[in-house]
Simulated assay, not measured.
Amino acid sequence: MDVSFRPVTADDFGLIGRWLAQPHVARWWAHEWSPEAVERDFGPTLRGEEPAEDLVADLGDRPIGLCQRSFWHAYPEEVEEFAPYLDVPRDAMTIDYLIGDPDDVGHGLGTALVRALAADTFAAHPDCGVILVPVLTGNPASWRALEKAGFHFVGEALAAPDNPIDPPDHRVYRLDRPASTHPERSRT
């Protein structure tokens, strides 16, 4: 599956709102989906006021999901929250993702999206050496997609969940930059 990514634009806000309203997304993302809330939550990144990226995942010319990525150390409070449980290297990034349409769930698109997002992250950010992703223990579909995409379980952590109904239990996954894509190694 050929999944590609493009930056979220204001024209995508309506689609994002519809995706966030889907029960399979709302369960884990716990975002409001009104036009005002979507602009409030995604507008700052669009305007460059947040040190993160919001991306639409496309399968061919059809949008299938929403992704986010950022360097961990751009958010010191999150590094501090996870520091008792794992080392967060200075070159570590994290990703988040969703498949928007319920008809697209359960067909391997999540794994394809995560695999493509990891490759795109390493390509777009040569200073990223590792991707660390905390996932709620109660969301096995998400952590299985990471495993199938090549991420490795590295430990457990307690951290505030996005949805207040969830316990703080997280599984943390790691994917190191492949040696063949390391900027210093590929020059030789």
Rank of each mutant, 00 (worst) to 15 (best):
L136T: 05
R187Y: 05
V135T: 14
R6D: 06
R174N: 01
T94C: 07
G138I: 12
L55Q: 12
A37Y: 10
R115I: 01
G60N: 12
A21Y: 03
F153Q: 06
R177K: 09
T137Y: 01
S186Y: 00
L59C: 11
A57Q: 11
A57M: 11
A157Q: 00
A30H: 13
A26P: 02
G65E: 14
G100Q: 11
D2A: 13
L117D: 12
H73C: 05
P23K: 06
C128M: 05
N163G: 02
R185C: 05
R40G: 00
Q68Y: 04
G108Y: 10
D103Y: 06
V114Q: 07
D61P: 00
D96L: 03
R40W: 00
N163P: 08
T111Y: 08
R69F: 07
P183C: 04
L113C: 11
S186I: 14
C67E: 13
I131K: 10
G106A: 10
D101L: 08
P126G: 08
L66F: 15
L136Q: 12
A30C: 04
G108I: 11
P44M: 04
Y85M: 10
A145Q: 09
S4V: 13
R115N: 05
D104R: 10
P140K: 02
Y97E: 06
G48R: 01
V133A: 09
Q68E: 13
G100D: 13
V8F: 03
I165M: 07
D162M: 14
L66K: 09
